[in-house]
Structure formats: C-alpha cells, structure tokens
C-alpha cells in the first residue's frame, strides 16, 4: 500500500462523531479560558478574534480538501461536511460573542451592520452560510438533486472571500496573517477555475 492509501484507510477510521465532538468542544474550551483569565486581561476581544480566526481556518481546510486530494491522493472528503458545519458553528459563536459580550446593545448592532462596511460584509457571509449549513445533510442532497445541491454549496466560495475580506478589513493596518489567509483562499479558489483545454493534435483531427 502506498502512503496515501494508508493515510486514507486511517482517515476513514476516524468516526465523524469524534470530529464533531472535538471541533465542537473548542469554543467551549476557549470560553472557559476567557472566563478564567487564560485569555489575558481583555478576554472579550481575545475570544471574539480567536473564534473568527478558527472559523476562517476551518473554511480554508474545507476549501483545501479537493486540491489536496488531487495533489497527494489523500482524501479528507468524508470529513468535509463535519468541517464545514464546524466552521458555521464557529462563525455563529463569533457572532454571539460580538453581539452579547462585545457590543451589548441590539440597536447598536443593527446600526453597525448598516454603517460599517466590514461588518456588513461579515454579516452577508453569515447569511449566505445559513442555507449551506441547513442543507448539509443527505436528505437535502436527495431533495435538491446533486446538481442543484452542488451549485448551492458553491456559495462556499463567495462566503470564504467575504469572510476573509471581513478579516482583512477589521485590522488597523495591512497585517500579514489576514493577508496570508486572503492569498491562500484565492489560490484555493483558483484551483477551481477550469482552464479551456487545448485540443490535442488527434482531437483536432
């Protein structure tokens, strides 16, 4: 067996529930740290950033599944749904921390959504995530049919660009880490572009 075959056998042995359990526990662990002084003297901002970064990191892994398989033969595809739903969960936690702990005022939350471009963009990404997360199940694939379902889930591309734009824009300066995420996401999206295939001499006839 080649290395990638062995890796695939190993990966398939990891049960989905374990991915959900470990991934789902991370925000609770962060919340515990933030509440007990493990995230520094200003834990609200630290927690908010941590959850946002976790969401974008998970989204990058989701986008990398296909190019990574093409490149290495190692497939994470059986865990892609779990990773996608976890990313949605992290975004939801990030949003709740912003709303409940940070801004603390629904009127101001609404004003910020309308007034601050980076928040408008982040909120647009969240709203687009809703139908994608809601249809991340076998029943929806059957109901929608694979073509429509796949088209709907290509919203992930738009969501990732909006999400990383939100991340870049929230900084006061052009910071290296968000810009690196932006480049990685653009490269991962570029691998989806189907270049027009040059006809071989035989095909030209």
């Amino acid at each position: 067996m080649t290395f990638s075959q062995r890796a695939n056998v190993g990966l398939r042995k990891v049960p989905s529930w374990l991915v959900y359990l470990v991934g789902g526990a991370i925000p609770f662990w962060s919340l515990y740290l933030a509440a007990t002084g493990g995230m520094g003297v200003e834990p609200i901002n630290a927690l908010e950033r941590e959850l946002g970064e976790l969401a974008i990191l998970t989204l990058v892994i989701v986008l990398a599944v296909t190019p990574f398989r093409r490149l290495t033969g190692i497939s994470l595809v059986m865990h892609r749904r779990a990773l996608g739903l976890l990313s949605f969960f992290y975004v939801l936690c990030h949003l709740l921390v912003w709303l409940v702990l940070d801004v603390q005022d629904l009127g101001r939350v609404w004003a910020d959504i309308l007034k601050r471009p980076y928040i408008t963009i982040g909120m647009a990404a969240f709203i687009l995530l809703l139908p994608v997360a809601a249809t991340s199940n076998n029943w929806s694939i059957r109901k929608l049919g694979p073509v429509r379902w796949r088209r709907l889930h290509q919203l992930t591309y738009v969501i990732s660009v909006l999400g990383v734009a939100h991340y870049v824009m929230v900084q006061k300066v052009w910071e290296a880490k968000p810009l690196a995420y932006l480049v990685i996401i653009l490269v991962l999206l570029a691998t989806r572009i189907e270049l027009p295939r040059r006809l071989s001499p035989a095909e030209k006839g």
Partner: peptide, 16 residues
C-alpha cells in the same frame, strides 16, 4: 469608520 466611539470598555472587567 469601523466602530462607534460613543462607548468604551475598561480593561480588567472580565468576560461580562
């Protein structure tokens, strides 16, 4: 442009 300056958070007040 990215946030209101009407309010502030005093560092050291904890998570809530």
């Amino acid at each position: 442009p990215n946030w209101s300056q009407a309010t502030e958070r005093r560092v050291g007040g904890g998570l809530f």
